[in-house]
């Protein structure tokens, strides 16, 4: 991979070969991929996402990252390594903040430096800083410097950012229509997505998209629940205003964006009678979730209405154990439901 993007104009070098940019299918891929893909396509580059997580990606990630890192970060390393030999440059944004006075997680803030330290043989790295904590209007603005770095004109960049934002809006519209983010991504990639089942026990699953929708990390949690006859709801469909309002019940503003959505979403689910159970999927060693999850659980317990289960996963989690716990959880909800009319005097 000797060629660099610098020689190219309009995303093409002299031979007319399109420059390939790699995007790891991990972490914020599940939130911002349409924006990124649209932008790079807009400036005439070919976008190569890494393949869905598999055993080899997991193992190479575990090998490259420190033991103490959480599973999604380890997997991110693996995705980067899967792209190294296939692309001309890698897109590794530094995600500090996607809204005012809130952060995502320290590890995401340091990720480009961690990758540079832990992975050898990296191609050219494009690493814009996304930080809306104090200034900046949209996550699209952060892409502008990348365009200039690649030698694009202001007009080309503006058009590409616009395209990216339009793609992102399309993605968000699909999600608000009730598709899971991963289904929306599949649809936008031109795949057929079957209608989600409409009848069954409604179970809310809360957790970070990069855990929930990476079928290797979550061991296909959503599909498993569906095959057991449950209808899965996530916090993705809840409008921003509802999340903000529900989360504002906390005495202090939650300064983790993803944690705020989990808390606001869970408060919302707890107030709904159609949600029969809540499952919190957390990865082992997730810092924010260790506190956010604690608050979720305490609030759920105090209300006593909706069963709540914490599912912690790491690279050693076995599939059989997860299936057993999910079955037991759904069984319990069903039994509770059947006996709803004669509630035990002992609670």
């Amino acid at each position: 991979m000797g060629k660099t993007a610098r020689e190219g104009r309009g995303g093409q070098n002299k031979g007319g070969i399109t420059i390939k940019v790699g995007i790891p299918r991990a972490l914020f891929y599940y939130y911002h991929y349409p924006l990124w893909e649209g932008f790079f396509r807009g400036i005439g580059m070919e976008v190569i996402p890494s393949p869905p997580t598999n055993k080899a990606i997991l193992n190479s990630g575990i090998g490259a990252a420190v033991d103490e890192a959480c599973l999604p970060v380890k997997i991110f390393y693996g995705h980067v390594m899967a792209l190294i030999d296939r692309v001309d440059c890698l897109f590794l944004p530094r995600l500090v903040s996607v809204e005012r006075k809130a952060y995502i997680c320290p590890k995401l803030m340091g990720l480009p430096d961690m990758i540079a330290a832990g992975v050898t043989g990296l191609p050219r790295v494009l690493s814009p800083c996304v930080d809306l904590s104090r200034r900046g209007r949209s996550v699209g603005d952060a892409l502008e410097p990348v365009g200039y770095q690649l030698g694009k004109s202001a007009r080309e960049i503006k058009r590409a950012v616009k395209l990216g934002l339009a793609e992102q809006r399309r993605f968000e519209d699909l999600v608000s229509q009730g598709y899971l983010p991963v289904e929306a991504l599949d649809m936008m990639a031109g795949h057929h997505v079957p209608e989600p089942p409409g009848a069954g026990i409604k179970v809310a699953v809360v957790g970070h998209s990069y855990n929930l929708f990476d079928s290797h990390i979550s061991m296909n949690l959503v599909q498993k629940l569906r095959s057991m006859g449950a209808v899965v709801v996530t916090t993705d469909q809840i409008p921003e205003e509802v999340v903000e309002e529900e989360a504002s019940r906390l005495p202090k503003r939650m300064f983790w964006t993803l944690g705020k959505r989990m808390l606001g979403g869970t408060f919302h689910f707890l107030s709904r009678t159609d949600i029969k159970g809540i499952i919190h999927l957390a990865s082992f060693g997730c810092g924010p979730d260790s506190l956010v999850g604690e608050l979720l659980e305490r609030h759920a317990r105090r209300q006593r209405g909706t069963p709540f289960m914490l599912l912690t996963i790491d690279e050693h989690t076995g599939e059989a154990g997860v299936v057993t716990r999910l079955e037991a959880f759904l069984d319990m909800i069903e039994r509770r439901h059947r006996n709803e009319d004669h509630v035990s005097a002992h609670g």
Binding site: E68, K107, M114, G118
Partner: peptide, 16 residues
């Protein structure tokens, strides 16, 4: 402390 996020970032970089 175990699972300290900022220190995991630092730890990942210290070998270099």
């Amino acid at each position: 402390p175990l699972t300290c996020m900022p220190e995991i970032v630092a730890q990942s970089i210290l070998p270099v």
